[in-house]
Amino acid sequence: MKTTSKIVLIGNGAVGSTFAYTVLLRGFVNELVIIDSNRDKAEGDMLDLNHGLMLAQPMKITVGDYADCADADIVVITAGSAQRPGETRIDLMNRNVQIFDSIIKQITAYTTKAILLIATNPVDILTQVALKLSGFPKERVIGSGTLLDSSRFRYLVAEKLGVDPRSVHGMVIGEHGDSEVPVWSSLSVAGMLPETQPQDSVWHINESQKEEIYNETKGAAYKIIEKKGATFYAIALSLARICEAILKDQRSILPVSSYLEGYHGINGVCLGVPSIVGRNGLEEVVPLPLSEREEEQLQSSAAKLKQFLEEIGF
């Protein structure tokens, strides 16, 4: 039985390097290998991270190449063309599909056993691209999905209610992007459903407030990109959370992107939905109850992504 753990990171840009730093701080893996076309940048970050080992957790951090994927538990892919100001995630599609074609071929030359964790946008489309190109079972190809969107959603709800975001339980599902679906029907705070609270209650969230929270959640990336050029802190934390759930076999329920078959009538597309994440990757998709409107929105999100997938031959 394997007693050590290893992550290979492909892509050492803003997201990748922040993920590497987060992994160092969290200390849940024995070895981290960084692969990037800019080897000097990767080596600089590797040295910088190693210089902090005395102040963090023992682990091995190196710069490597695709051969290092051979014994990796997880290969995290953050490489790709960055989203430009004013550009939607879907606009990234064709450029990043070409990049992924090269990356996946090099990974599969050395391993067919690792779990692939995709963060590059548009993440749901590229998760499906990685699934098809790799030939891996669907349980071992996972996208970051709507975990980040759900974190943004919970933060905004918590701000409205004046509570700790960790006390808010709710999810955004569907596409990580413009057609994402906030699941208001099951949003809860300490077991209480704001949806069912009287209109004069401080715990009630009215339709106008819902729309504001939804638009802020959906538009968060655009706002951040406009102000500083890229988003990387929260997505790095999201990736680290997924990796920790896998390596520690936590069986955590997280809204990750995976290939759906018969989920609320959806087939043949990768979307973010609540799933049990553990040592084998995606252990099980969780049947989340939805209102009629939420189900329609989720199906519309799936149809949108299917259309784009057909255009690129996937």
Rank of each mutant, 00 (worst) to 15 (best):
A130Y: 01
K138N: 10
P194T: 04
K218T: 15
T78I: 02
L305K: 02
L187C: 08
Y222T: 15
V183K: 15
G86Y: 05
I74G: 02
V273E: 04
M59R: 06
V202I: 00
V189D: 05
N38F: 11
V76F: 00
Q299H: 02
M54N: 09
L116I: 05
G313N: 12
R26N: 12
I10E: 09
E87L: 06
A303L: 09
D71H: 03
D40F: 12
R95F: 06
I225D: 08
K304I: 09
D40E: 14
Y155S: 14
M1H: 08
K138C: 09
V23C: 07
R89P: 01
D249C: 08
L309G: 07
V15T: 11
A70T: 01
A82W: 05
T217M: 03
V202S: 03
N96V: 06
G174Y: 06
P58E: 03
P85C: 07
T88D: 00
G278P: 13
I35A: 08
G64M: 08
F19I: 04
L239F: 11
D124Q: 04
I90L: 08
I90P: 00
I99V: 12
L49P: 01
E195A: 10
G262P: 06
E311K: 15
K227C: 12
T127Y: 03
R84E: 04
V33N: 11
E31I: 03
L131G: 02
P289T: 10
E195D: 11
A190G: 13
Y155I: 14
S185C: 11
R279E: 11
A82C: 03
R293N: 05
Q197R: 12
E139G: 07
L116C: 01
E292F: 04
H264T: 13
A221K: 03
R154I: 11
Q250Y: 03
S275P: 11
A119Q: 09
A302I: 03
L24S: 10
Q83F: 00
A303W: 04
P137A: 10
